[in-house]
Amino acid sequence: MPRILSQVLKNLLRKPATVKYPYVRVKPPKGYRGAPVIDKEKCIRCWLCIRACPDRAISVNKETKKPSIWHGRCTFCGECAEVCPTRAITMTEDFELATYDIQRARSE
């Protein structure tokens, strides 16, 4: 008990270890695997990403004839970004992907 008592009293005087999240943000480290985005200019339609995706989250957009990633299935493994020959897909640091409409959770 004395051991934890001293720790508890010390904690009272220290700055808390937590932050008030929506107001204070902690930046993810470099190389964080957040939401993947597709640079349409760079895409050469090789469809390697579709083959590499373990979750079948990437499909072809019928209008633009370019791939689009559905975040509802994406597991953020980063295989598509790795396999893309032109580096058109990159993993961003964006992790706040909650949405009311799951169908619109897409990287076009």
Partner: peptide
């Protein structure tokens, strides 16, 4: 997170 890019997976 630093070495793998993901906190859990």
């Amino acid at each position: 997170e630093m070495i793998s890019g993901g906190r859990v997976h």
